[in-house]
Design a protein around this nucleic acid. Structure first.
Length: 269
DNA sequence: CGTCTTTGACCTGCGC
DNA sequence: GCGCAGGTCAAAGACG
């Protein structure tokens, strides 16, 4: 984690080289130096994130999607970089400032905390979780804040779930949650769904197990979900969310109108 | 009252 | 063998 030059999660680094949302799997042969690509991608990522933040101020639902973008963007990109052992995966996600003291990363599974420890290389405590769904489920999760950025949560998953993810879809649906699974399935574009809770602070990926034998949701989030199709889904979701938000559209309209008025010679604002 | 979190103690692996 | 650091256990308290 010492390769983090800008305070971002280091596991993000290699992935950022391929754009705002890094792709997993083998990277294409570098056309320029890795460091250069890295820097360029990081700058662009930061610039876009800043622009998005400005747009999304006080738009909780949209912010949740943006948060997922961050989480995904900072997920590991290469096995060499972040997978010292098979079956170990790392996910980074930016926490809300309001949750600055929390050490919890919602990934759709139910976790039971069984320990907490302060480690040598990080002033923030590391929390240890086990799957609470089934005592026999071998997966474990460690969550720790980044030493460089206390809002950056770093979760390490060890092992895999031996059961299907509990159905949060219905829970969220019954609590006025935003869900897009039906849209996605009808469109047939990508066999996953994204649901956001009513507060807009929790997002859940639901990838049907039967379509990916032997897979599990947590693994999908960190390992396979960041494909061009998934990027498209994210962008579509964001666009759709914002499009249906009358308040946002109103703000956007006024902003555009104000900008146009600025360009009219003699206009006094 | 059941479930979950907290937290100090204990266990284990590893480097010296 | 010893010490250190990470990981786990389990009792106690908090909470709904």
């Amino acid at each position: 984690m010492e390769d983090s030059s800008n305070g971002e999660c280091s596991s993000h680094a290699a992935g950022a080289a391929s754009g705002l949302l890094p792709l997993f799997g083998p990277s294409p042969p570098p056309a320029e130096s890795l460091e250069g690509r890295l820097r360029r991608a990081s700058e662009e990522n930061r610039r876009l994130a800043g622009a998005l933040d400005a747009i999304l101020a006080d738009r909780p639902g949209a912010r949740a999607l943006a948060a997922v973008g961050n989480a995904v963007a900072q997920a590991p990109a290469t096995a060499d970089a972040v997978e010292p052992r098979p079956g170990v995966r790392t996910v980074c996600a930016r926490a809300e400032p309001a949750d600055a003291d929390a050490n919890h990363l919602n990934d759709g599974y139910h976790w039971r905390k069984y320990g907490q420890k302060v480690t040598r290389d990080n002033p923030y405590p590391r929390a240890y979780f086990r799957c609470a769904h089934s005592p026999s489920c071998p997966i474990k999760k460690k969550v720790q804040r980044s030493a460089e950025d206390k809002l950056m949560l770093v979760a390490t998953y060890e092992g895999e779930h031996n059961h299907a993810r509990r159905d949060l879809q219905s829970e969220y649906a019954s609590s006025n949650a935003f869900t897009s699974s039906q849209q996605q399935q009808q469109a047939g574009s990508w066999p996953c769904s994204i649901s956001i809770d009513s507060l807009g602070r929790t997002i859940t990926f639901d990838l049907p197990d039967q379509q990916r034998p032997g897979s599990n949701a947590a693994e999908e989030v960190v390992g396979e979900v960041v494909t061009p199709e998934f990027r498209k889904v994210l962008v579509d979701e964001l666009a759709s969310l914002l499009k249906n938000d009358s308040e946002f559209m109103e703000s956007l309209t006024s902003a555009v109108a104000a900008r146009m008025m600025e360009r009219i010679p003699g206009h006094i604002s």
